[in-house]
Amino acid sequence: MTEDARWLSGLEEQARARLAAPVFEYVAQGARDGQTASRAVDTWAAVEFHPHVLRDVTDVGLETELLGSPVGVPWGVAPSTLQRAIHPDGELAMARATAQAGGVMVVSSNAGTPFSLIGETGVRWWLQAYLPADRTLAVPMLDRAVAAGASAVVLTVDTPVVGTKYPVGRVVWDVVDPALLRVNFDKGTDERPGADKALDLGPHDVDWLAEHTGLPVVVKGVLRPDDAVRCVQAGARAVWVSNHGGRQLDRAVSTAAVLREVIAAVGEQAQVYVDGGVRSGLDVVAALSLGADAVFLGRLPLYALTDGEPGVARMHREVGAQVVETMRLSGCRTLADVAALHAPSAPNHP
């Protein structure tokens, strides 16, 4: 049983009340008119289940395997910067709580905490990377991540430029110390020629990242089946269906709407992950029922981070409690059972 069945749904308002207005706006807002961001939550709520009955649900298992390694739960934390603007412990609080929950944490390349300290928490973590026009400028950052124990690289491909936002009043950069981000880059990197985000990303970058780091590469920001196939052909071990939380291209399609198409396109060749508007354990089950191998939470853990490590730990517990309850009510003992919830099985005639 959860401690408070509505606690998760109240996290956004808790964050709004506690954070400086520009910081909250940075976390919550979408690009331009915010259409993609505002639609995301409702698209998961529209996913309906076809529950089984007369199933033994005494023991429910949440364990799964991502990129060939076992993990305790099928959800993780998506990458985000400025976590130390939300709470002084920032990425360290997020990492410790996520390690305790048995999940994967994806760390932004723009993080405000040294990778070495994140690695020392014992969390299983992947590096999120943007590539600059001059790829060599990313090499020191990539090497630091590998040395600190990153076990995968997540290449974000939907951000050749930063999507336009319409701020109200002061922006986050007016109130946040620049020392709270990009601490894993060499000093002066941002002033060097070629430091802008790459406008020429291509399949070759997937191969280059894999070869340089020796790690599996996940491609994040895919919304089309044909692009998913190109990613897999380029060597991606997983494809991450994401519209960047509605923060890049406004009017982009919701991730829930295209998830099954992407999964069908890549088949058994690669895993498929998803994010975007996931706010509860029921949303996690909805994504898993559509076939996702894992679900990543973006804004929800940031809102929980206003309470530091205890807040993020409670968020994981509450999500877990909702997932387990939903699985039991649906007659599911394993995550494989959940994958069959979205559509009824064909009749089993004698």
Score class of each variant (00 low, 15 high):
residue 1 M to V: 12
residue 1 M to S: 07
residue 2 T to A: 10
residue 9 S to V: 02
residue 11 L to W: 03
residue 18 R to N: 02
residue 19 L to G: 01
residue 21 A to H: 12
residue 26 Y to W: 15
residue 27 V to I: 15
residue 28 A to Q: 13
residue 28 A to Y: 13
residue 35 Q to V: 15
residue 37 A to L: 12
residue 38 S to D: 14
residue 40 A to S: 14
residue 44 W to F: 14
residue 44 W to H: 15
residue 45 A to V: 00
residue 48 E to Y: 01
residue 50 H to C: 12
residue 50 H to V: 15
residue 53 V to L: 11
residue 54 L to K: 02
residue 57 V to N: 05
residue 58 T to S: 14
residue 61 G to S: 14
residue 62 L to T: 11
residue 64 T to H: 05
residue 67 L to P: 09
residue 71 V to L: 08
residue 72 G to C: 12
residue 72 G to A: 08
residue 75 W to T: 02
residue 81 T to E: 09
residue 83 Q to I: 02
residue 84 R to A: 07
residue 86 I to Y: 02
residue 92 L to E: 06
residue 97 A to S: 11
residue 98 T to L: 10
residue 99 A to Y: 05
residue 102 G to A: 02
residue 102 G to W: 14
residue 103 G to I: 13
residue 107 V to N: 00
residue 109 S to F: 10
residue 110 N to A: 15
residue 110 N to R: 14
residue 115 F to E: 00
residue 117 L to M: 12
residue 117 L to F: 04
residue 118 I to Y: 03
residue 121 T to G: 07
residue 121 T to E: 09
residue 126 W to R: 04
residue 128 Q to M: 08
residue 128 Q to K: 06
residue 130 Y to E: 03
residue 131 L to K: 10
residue 133 A to F: 05
residue 139 V to F: 09
residue 139 V to M: 05
residue 141 M to T: 06
residue 142 L to C: 01
residue 143 D to L: 05
residue 145 A to P: 01
residue 149 G to I: 15
residue 151 S to I: 10
residue 152 A to C: 12
residue 153 V to M: 04
residue 153 V to K: 07
residue 158 D to Q: 08
residue 159 T to W: 03
residue 163 G to N: 10
residue 163 G to Y: 11
residue 165 K to Q: 14
residue 173 W to G: 01
residue 174 D to T: 11
residue 177 D to G: 01
residue 179 A to K: 13
residue 181 L to V: 11
residue 184 N to G: 02
residue 189 T to V: 11
residue 192 R to P: 05
residue 197 K to L: 14
residue 198 A to F: 04
residue 199 L to R: 13
residue 201 L to K: 07
residue 201 L to Q: 11
residue 204 H to D: 14
residue 206 V to N: 04
residue 209 L to W: 07
residue 209 L to M: 03
residue 209 L to R: 08
residue 224 R to V: 01
residue 224 R to M: 09
residue 227 D to G: 04
residue 228 A to V: 08
residue 230 R to I: 01
residue 233 Q to L: 12
residue 234 A to Q: 09
residue 236 A to S: 06
residue 239 V to S: 01
residue 241 V to W: 09
residue 245 G to S: 09
residue 246 G to Y: 07
residue 251 R to C: 02
residue 252 A to V: 02
residue 257 A to W: 04
residue 260 R to N: 02
residue 260 R to I: 00
residue 262 V to N: 06
residue 266 V to I: 05
residue 270 A to N: 06
residue 279 R to G: 09
residue 279 R to V: 07
residue 279 R to C: 11
residue 280 S to R: 15
residue 283 D to H: 15
residue 288 L to K: 03
residue 289 S to F: 04
residue 290 L to Y: 00
residue 291 G to M: 10
residue 291 G to P: 12
residue 292 A to Q: 06
residue 295 V to I: 10
residue 296 F to P: 02
residue 297 L to K: 10
residue 303 Y to E: 08
residue 307 D to F: 09
residue 316 H to Q: 03
residue 318 E to G: 00
residue 321 A to W: 09
residue 321 A to T: 13
residue 326 T to P: 01
residue 331 G to A: 11
residue 332 C to G: 04
residue 333 R to F: 01
residue 333 R to L: 03
residue 334 T to V: 08
residue 334 T to N: 05
residue 337 D to H: 12
residue 342 H to L: 01
residue 345 S to Q: 13
residue 345 S to T: 13
residue 345 S to A: 15
residue 347 P to L: 14
residue 348 N to A: 15
residue 349 H to W: 13
residue 350 P to W: 13
residue 350 P to Y: 11
residue 350 P to V: 14
